[in-house]
Amino acid sequence: MPESIPAQMAAMQLVGHGGLDQLVYNQDVPVPKPGPGEVLVRVTATAKNNTDRKAREGLYPTKDKDDTTSFAIGGSPTLTFPRIQGADIVGRVAAIGAEVAETRIGERGLLDFNIYGSDRRDINLTPDYYGHGADGGFAEYVVLPSDQFHAVNNPELSDAELASMGMCSYQTAYHMLTAANVGAGEHVLVTGASGGVGTALIQLCRVIGAIPYALSTEEKAAPLYELGVAHVFDRRHMDDFTAQVREATGGAPLDAVMDLVGGDATMRFIEAMTFDMNARTSYPRLSIAGASGSNVTEVMWTVIYLYQVQIFGVSHGTRVEAEQLIDWIRAGQLKPVLHAAFKLSRLRECERYFVDRGSNFLGKIVVVPDSQWAEHGVPYTLENV
């Protein structure tokens, strides 16, 4: 039986570019209504992503590195204020629009977070996403495309755990691998390995048969080994990085690097792929989907073209990749890496924790509406992890 839908809801609204003061908790936001082909979802958990902070602070320059701007690959900015952020949404279908089957009411699902620029299934050239170009999941309700809200009924996965496997991290990770054509048996370095994309990359390498290596810290080595890495390199000790790679791989160069860091380490990664070209059977490949180290890197282009290093920029993936990931989640081939949950009303505190996270941090943080906290958030509070 359809649930009673309130007229107003609580939501965290981003009211402008800037600091945490731009996040305003509003309990009188109108509940949106689903249109044709859409579903109204009662949100139970939404994963926190670094793109939430970067969009808030305007850290997506494409011309001047000092620009304060939003994600605008489609040609013009789509981030308007107020905006409800939050891309990796889990919840229950509460109501449907025209052209959607009534049987979907009550269904639990996970969102494919993309706002696709076309109907193409194999390419995504002008990506945008929910929580940026349209309202997202940092609210009690959200309207989403019915064909992108994928049912996941696995009883072993809680809603918070399912949100931690959201497409913003997992689809980005998978597209990093597919763009670089990574295959079974290849040695793959994952930088930023303890975060959401990093932990997804490690698991996805194992699913496709590649051998993942992690760049992280010694304190996080044990859980990274449990997740499936062959070796953990300490990012604080990289002066002899190529020698460390030789030892860890038995003398083989890295086949590919999945980089979320950028900055000064980039040339070290390239050297670790090119120190013995005679031992390679494929071109060196560098997939980049983040720049937590620095947005600007000095690169020797002679090294790039003489060693034929292939560089792939990755922001979002495709419909086909999203559906493959959903299949793997349903089949139990991917596991949640959930660090903690925060109440929606405490999103500012959550943001501070996310930025200042310490040596014990691994995986994802999820945000749970206060009205859903007792059922979906309490087991994952910081005190319980």
Rank of each mutant, 00 (worst) to 15 (best):
377 G>S: 00
286 L>Q: 02
209 G>R: 12
363 G>D: 10
78 T>D: 08
380 Y>F: 15
151 A>S: 15
114 N>R: 09
266 T>N: 05
197 V>H: 01
237 H>V: 07
131 G>D: 01
324 Q>V: 08
69 T>R: 14
109 G>I: 03
272 A>M: 04
190 V>C: 13
5 I>H: 03
342 F>C: 01
82 P>R: 02
237 H>A: 11
98 A>K: 11
246 R>M: 12
135 D>C: 00
11 A>K: 12
81 F>N: 02
90 V>K: 03
81 F>I: 06
40 L>P: 07
43 V>P: 00
250 G>L: 06
338 L>A: 03
101 A>I: 07
51 T>R: 10
4 S>K: 12
46 T>S: 08
259 D>Y: 02
306 L>S: 10
350 C>N: 15
112 D>C: 04
316 H>R: 09
52 D>S: 11
160 A>V: 09
125 L>E: 15
281 T>Q: 13
275 F>L: 07
251 G>D: 06
52 D>F: 09
294 S>P: 09
18 G>Q: 12
50 N>K: 06
31 V>W: 00
327 D>L: 06
118 S>D: 13
125 L>N: 13
3 E>V: 15
184 A>I: 06
368 V>T: 10
300 M>H: 14
194 S>T: 10
347 L>S: 04
46 T>A: 11
336 P>Y: 07
349 E>N: 12
171 Q>V: 10
194 S>A: 15
328 W>L: 14
193 A>K: 01
58 G>F: 06
212 P>H: 10
349 E>Q: 14
